[in-house]
């Protein structure tokens, strides 16, 4: 009904965090940024971008599905379930169950991705394994 709204809210929050981080990065000196980026294997801002893209991508495609099924309309209140109190309750219940699980699973997948990316980035490149430096 409107399950994609929950990940969409998360996408807005994460995008805002990303914007704040970018502003901070510009404000601080470049030398400071390079030192902090060297400490982390994959920069955190890069990882935040992955989450933002996954959330926005999923939300846009799911919003299209809802439009397809007539659950979203281009006029107020935009969600057809909002016009009937009974359906509104059902919509809120779906948002609390399906929507929250969607947002949580995307975040869990992202956290696993971050961990795996750090491990892969720390690993020596395949060329280094074939021709080890003596």
């Amino acid at each position: 009904m409107a399950c994609f709204v929950v990940p969409a809210v998360e996408a807005v929050v994460v995008s805002a965090v990303d914007k704040c981080m970018r502003k901070k990065e510009i404000a601080t000196s470049t030398s400071e940024t390079s030192v902090s980026e060297n400490l982390a294997v994959v920069p955190f801002r890069q990882k935040i971008k992955w989450l933002t893209r996954m959330l926005w991508g999923g939300c846009v495609l799911l919003a299209f599905e809802h439009l397809w099924h007539g659950e979203i309309v281009p006029w107020f209140p935009f969600l057809t379930a909002m016009s009937d109190p009974g359906e509104t309750t059902e919509m809120l219940r779906e948002m609390a169950t399906v929507g929250v699980t969607m947002a949580a699973l995307i975040t869990v997948v992202w956290l696993v991705m971050c961990k795996v990316a750090d491990v892969i980035a720390k690993r020596p490149a395949p060329n280094d394994l074939q021709n080890p430096v003596n």
Binding site: M54, L55, G57, G58, L62, V98, T101, I106, V109
Partner: peptide, 19 residues
Amino acid sequence: VLCFLFWGASIMWFVDAIF
């Protein structure tokens, strides 16, 4: 960008399918 678009949607539809 395309990878993240498809994976994001796939994860969300997977949750929908479970429910």
